[in-house]
């Protein structure tokens, strides 16, 4: 819990400056697709950062965060579909295309499901927790696969991106900066949170649950709160990805999507919050590089992940801050 060394801070400044300067650079070299790619990394970094809150600071290994991601995305997709088709969603309400309504709702839906999953799964620990979170994500996946009203297996196209306070989010660069702003804001918020009284308790429960009980703390409410916050923020990332892709489908909720968030946290550095931003960028660069070499890029990515687990435990941010192993 000591602050990071200068080298790591500098690297973070460079990374964020790089992300901020990417659109003009991409325009200069005539490759606007770079912005679309980077936008993906920003959104996935946000989801992984939310996961790091519970995985890094609470040692709660959730293998089901794709459910919260997908629920957030579908909330935006469904609200938008009802507006476009003019079919009432509930209580005569036709849904909404306004981000100020849809995004908080996406967070609320994801938070509600996180509360349900959390109440059941947090009574267990270890591999149980991993398997239960995975199974509950799979349940939501199958639910949406078997809902033909919202596209079933094929998913749902957004006719339009959301508007934010009436302003359309169609501009590629504008939307990118909005996502980057959200990411930085969430980073600032979570950094404060892990250093607060609440964060201390969460980390104490990670270190030694029995000791915490002897001091008068019951871990469950703290863990559940962190789990719900994490789910809500992952839902926000889902709302962003729906707008980014202008399309939502059950693919957002697959187990491999959950795995990908975990990989991003690992590559970036567990229990660092900023690490997932590194991890998301690194994974994207790695994937794009491999894809350009071979169509069977996962044949390489898989072993790279294995090696990273075995020999690169602190992740990128851990290496930068001289923290080879894990806390």
């Amino acid at each position: 819990m000591t602050s990071a060394p200068l080298r790591a801070r500098l690297a973070t400044v460079v990374l964020l400056a790089g992300l901020a300067l990417l659109p003009p650079v991409a325009a200069m070299i005539g490759d606007p697709y770079l912005v679309t790619l980077a936008n993906r990394a920003v959104i996935y970094g946000l989801a992984a950062m939310a996961l790091d809150l519970i995985m890094g600071y609470g040692r709660l290994v959730s293998f089901g965060h794709a459910a919260f991601f997908g629920l957030g995305a579908y909330t935006v997709g469904i609200l938008s579909t009802h507006v476009m088709q003019g079919i009432p969603l509930a209580f005569g309400w036709n849904g909404s295309n306004e981000a100020l309504i849809a995004w908080p709702l996406a967070m609320a839906v994801s938070a509600a499901y996180a509360a349900f999953v959390g109440v059941i799964s947090l009574r267990t620990s270890g591999v149980y927790f991993i398997m239960i979170t995975l199974a509950f994500a799979q349940m939501v996946y199958y639910l949406f696969v078997s809902l033909p009203a919202y596209g079933g297996q094929d998913g749902l196209s957004l006719w339009l991106r959301n508007t934010a306070a009436g302003v359309a989010l169609d501009d590629r660069t504008g939307f990118y900066y909005l996502c980057l702003g959200v990411l930085v804001a969430v980073w600032a918020l979570l950094t404060r949170m892990v250093n607060s009284r609440f964060g201390r308790v969460l980390q104490g429960c990670r270190e030694n649950e029995r000791r915490m009980r002897a001091l008068g703390f019951r871990p469950m409410p703290y863990r559940l709160t962190a789990f719900v916050i994490s789910g809500a923020l992952t839902g926000l990332a889902g709302a962003l990805v729906a707008n980014h892709q202008e399309f939502v489908s059950p693919a957002l909720m697959t187990w491999s999507q959950s795995g990908q968030f975990m990989v991003i946290v690992l590559l970036g550095g567990l229990a660092s919050l900023v690490g997932p931003i590194y991890g998301a960028v690194a994974l994207l660069v790695l994937e794009e590089t491999l894809v350009s070499v071979t169509q069977h890029w996962q044949l390489v990515l898989g072993p790279v992940l294995v090696l990273a687990v075995l020999f690169f435990r602190g992740g990128l941010y851990g290496a930068l801050s001289g923290r080879g192993g894990r806390q």
């Binding site: 819990m1 000591t2 404060r192 949170m193 607060s196 009284r197 609440f198 964060g199 201390r200 308790v201 980390q203 104490g204 270190e207 030694n208 029995r210 000791r211 002897a214 001091l215 008068g216 703390f217 703290y222 709160t225 806390q327």
Partner: peptide
């Protein structure tokens, strides 16, 4: 049974906090 990744003061502060309540201060 102390919290290894915390500083000494942080260990004791957590114990103080258990008495002081207000654990749901997030910021």
């Amino acid at each position: 049974a102390v919290f290894e990744s915390f500083t000494v003061r942080e260990n004791v502060a957590l114990a103080v906090q258990s008495r002081a309540r207000h654990h749901f201060h997030f910021f």
